[in-house]
Deep mutational scan, measured.
Amino acid sequence: GYRKEQERLGIPYDPIQWSTDQVLHWVVWVMKEFSMTDIDLTTLNISGRELCSLNQEDFFQRVPRGEILWSHLELLRKY
Rank of each mutant, 00 (worst) to 15 (best):
G1T: 08
G1C: 08
G1E: 08
Y2N: 08
R3L: 07
R3D: 04
R3C: 07
R3K: 10
R3W: 10
K4D: 09
E5S: 02
E5P: 00
E5V: 10
Q6H: 01
Q6E: 06
Q6W: 04
Q6A: 10
Q6V: 11
E7C: 04
E7Q: 11
E7K: 04
R8L: 11
R8C: 05
R8D: 07
L9G: 04
L9P: 02
L9D: 05
G10I: 03
G10W: 04
I11L: 07
I11S: 01
I11Q: 00
I11N: 02
I11H: 03
P12R: 00
P12S: 06
P12E: 04
P12D: 05
Y13W: 12
Y13M: 14
Y13V: 09
Y13I: 13
Y13A: 10
D14K: 02
D14E: 08
P15G: 01
P15T: 00
P15A: 03
I16F: 13
I16W: 13
Q17Y: 13
Q17T: 13
Q17C: 09
W18K: 01
W18E: 01
W18H: 00
S19E: 05
S19V: 00
S19A: 03
S19Q: 06
T20A: 15
T20V: 13
T20D: 09
T20E: 15
D21T: 09
D21K: 13
Q22Y: 02
Q22G: 01
Q22N: 12
V23W: 00
V23F: 01
V23E: 00
V23M: 01
V23R: 03
L24C: 14
L24K: 12
L24D: 07
L24Q: 08
L24Y: 06
L24E: 10
H25P: 00
H25L: 08
W26K: 01
V27S: 07
V27A: 14
V27E: 01
V28D: 15
V28A: 14
V28I: 13
V28H: 13
V28T: 15
V28C: 15
W29Y: 09
W29F: 06
W29C: 03
W29L: 02
V30L: 09
V30R: 03
V30C: 14
V30M: 12
V30P: 02
V30Q: 05
M31G: 10
M31A: 12
K32I: 03
K32Y: 07
K32D: 15
E33I: 02
E33V: 06
E33T: 10
E33A: 08
E33H: 10
E33N: 07
E33Q: 09
F34L: 08
F34E: 11
F34D: 07
F34M: 07
F34P: 03
F34S: 11
F34Q: 13
F34G: 09
S35R: 12
S35I: 02
S35Y: 07
S35P: 10
S35K: 13
M36I: 12
M36G: 07
M36L: 15
M36R: 13
M36D: 13
M36E: 12
M36S: 09
M36Q: 10
T37K: 15
T37M: 13
T37Q: 14
T37E: 15
T37V: 09
D38S: 11
D38R: 08
D38Q: 10
D38F: 04
D38A: 08
D38P: 14
I39T: 12
I39A: 07
I39N: 11
I39L: 13
D40A: 06
D40G: 06
L41I: 14
L41Y: 13
L41F: 10
L41C: 11
T42I: 07
T42H: 11
T42G: 13
T42P: 09
T43N: 12
T43W: 09
T43M: 12
L44A: 03
N45I: 06
N45D: 08
N45V: 09
N45L: 07
N45T: 14
N45M: 11
I46P: 00
I46V: 09
S47H: 06
S47F: 01
S47M: 04
G48T: 02
G48A: 02
G48V: 01
G48H: 05
R49H: 08
R49Q: 13
E50T: 09
E50G: 03
E50Q: 14
E50P: 00
L51H: 01
L51E: 02
L51V: 03
L51A: 00
L51G: 01
C52T: 06
S53C: 11
S53I: 04
S53M: 09
S53K: 09
L54A: 00
L54V: 05
L54D: 01
L54I: 08
N55Y: 06
N55H: 09
N55Q: 09
Q56Y: 15
Q56E: 13
Q56I: 08
Q56F: 10
Q56A: 12
Q56T: 09
Q56N: 04
Q56V: 07
Q56R: 14
E57Q: 12
E57K: 09
D58T: 11
D58H: 08
D58N: 07
D58K: 09
D58A: 12
F59Y: 01
F59C: 00
F60D: 04
F60R: 14
F60C: 10
F60S: 14
Q61P: 02
Q61W: 05
Q61A: 13
Q61I: 07
R62D: 02
R62M: 15
R62V: 12
R62Q: 09
R62A: 09
R62E: 07
V63C: 14
V63N: 04
V63A: 11
V63E: 03
P64E: 06
P64A: 05
P64R: 05
P64V: 04
P64T: 05
R65N: 11
R65W: 08
R65E: 15
R65M: 09
R65A: 14
G66I: 02
G66S: 07
G66M: 00
G66R: 03
G66F: 02
G66T: 02
E67C: 07
E67N: 10
I68P: 15
I68R: 12
L69H: 06
L69R: 00
L69S: 01
L69Y: 06
L69G: 00
L69T: 00
W70Y: 11
W70N: 02
W70M: 03
W70F: 07
W70K: 01
W70H: 04
W70R: 04
S71N: 09
S71I: 08
H72A: 06
H72C: 05
H72R: 05
L73T: 00
L73W: 07
L73K: 04
E74Q: 11
E74I: 05
E74S: 12
E74D: 13
L75E: 15
L76H: 05
R77D: 04
R77G: 04
R77M: 05
K78H: 13
K78I: 14
K78N: 15
Y79R: 11
Y79P: 14
